[in-house]
Computed example of a mutant assay.
Amino acid sequence: MARIFITGSVDGLGRAAAEELIAAGHDVVVHARNEERADALGALRSHTLGVVTGDLARAGDTHYVADQVNAFGRMDAVIHNAGVYLEHDRGTTVDGHARTFAINTLAPFLLTALIQRPERLVYLSSGLHRGGTDSLDDLDWMTRPWDAGQAYADSKLHVTTLAAAIARRSGTLTASVDPGWVPTRMGGPSATGDLRLGHITQTWFATSGEIDRSVSGGYWHHKAQQRPHPSAVDTAFQDRLIEALEAITGERLGGA
């Protein structure tokens, strides 16, 4: 049985993944933004290995989340599930960054750098990442005119690229996953996707013994590998993005 940490796991796809993994006998550490949100876990909380708290929009909190996870010992897998979509007015600027960039890009990067490296890393992407831009100018949207849709697409290109870069740089088995447009709190009630199909790729990739390492770094939708944005597999862009994120955060990604 595996030990797995899932960000943003109070509700939606993160909770669905946690419930499925716990039912299968795995040890799961879940994450909530704060203790009030953790209360929404209800009875599920007693079935987890533990709960960590921290607002991933804030660098200090993200460091604290990593410290809490490391206190449990090395994870077998981490699922970077937390994310925000179409934040208005820069989604409230936090630590000098637009909230979309802070949660969707910086937090997965920081947690990857700070948490003891597991065997497997899974990053929640989106089909909208194909509309992302590979410019690294003003990554945190402090001077550009705010465009919530573009900020989201860019952030999902970033994590798709991050997954591919880590696979290339280390022996860690990684994946980026498009869960589809599903009716979660983020996706909204109009979403047409299947909620169960939205999380099965993450849980499968985190635990399955069927996965060949040759597919590490790939982009997936409903257990099928797909072609991502060309920049995600461009090694020069991968390196430039990581260098930019290291400069912003002051943390080194490192290797294996």
Rank of each mutant, 00 (worst) to 15 (best):
T143W: 09
I103M: 08
G180P: 02
R33I: 02
I79D: 03
A24L: 12
S176E: 08
G127A: 15
A40T: 11
T207V: 11
D95Q: 10
E87G: 15
F72D: 03
V52C: 01
D212A: 14
A38H: 07
G25T: 09
A57N: 05
L241S: 01
R168C: 02
Y219V: 03
E36L: 13
T184D: 09
W220H: 06
D212V: 14
D239S: 14
L56E: 05
Y152S: 05
G91C: 10
H129R: 10
Q150N: 11
H88K: 15
M142S: 15
Y64E: 14
A82I: 08
I103K: 01
T174Q: 09
L197V: 04
D194I: 05
D95V: 08
A24V: 09
L21C: 01
H221E: 14
A244D: 08
D154L: 02
G132L: 07
T143A: 13
T105F: 00
A16M: 10
I103N: 00
G132E: 03
E36T: 13
A148D: 15
F5E: 01
A77M: 09
V69Y: 04
A40K: 15
S208M: 09
G127N: 12
A256V: 12
D27P: 01
T92C: 10
L49Q: 13
P108K: 03
L121K: 04
N81Y: 02
H158W: 08
T161N: 06
I200F: 10
P189L: 12
E87V: 14
I79Y: 01
G188M: 10
A32E: 04
Y85Q: 12
V10H: 03
G14L: 00
V69G: 01
E19W: 00
L86I: 13
K223L: 15
S126P: 03
E251K: 12
R33W: 01
D55M: 02
F101D: 02
P189M: 11
T184L: 09
A18W: 05
Q116L: 14
D154P: 05
A148V: 00
E19T: 08
I115M: 03
F101K: 01
I79M: 10
W141T: 06
R169D: 13
E20S: 13
L139R: 01
I200M: 12
A71N: 13
A16K: 00
L253P: 00
T201D: 11
I166G: 03
Y219P: 07
Y219Q: 07
L197D: 12
A151T: 08
L114Y: 06
H221R: 14
N104F: 04
G254V: 11
V94Y: 03
W146R: 06
T161Y: 07
A16I: 02
N34Y: 04
A43V: 12
T192G: 02
G73Y: 09
G217C: 09
Q68L: 09
A236M: 12
G180K: 05
A43T: 14
A82L: 06
H222D: 13
T249M: 08
E210Q: 15
N104E: 11
T48I: 10
V30Q: 02
G193F: 04
A175N: 06
A167I: 07
H26R: 03
L49A: 15
A23N: 13
P118W: 06
I242H: 04
T249D: 08
F72H: 14
E119I: 04
T160S: 09
T192H: 11
Q68W: 08
L106Y: 02
I4Q: 05
W141C: 10
D234A: 11
R240L: 07
R227V: 15
A113F: 07
E35D: 15
Q202C: 10
D147N: 15
A256C: 14
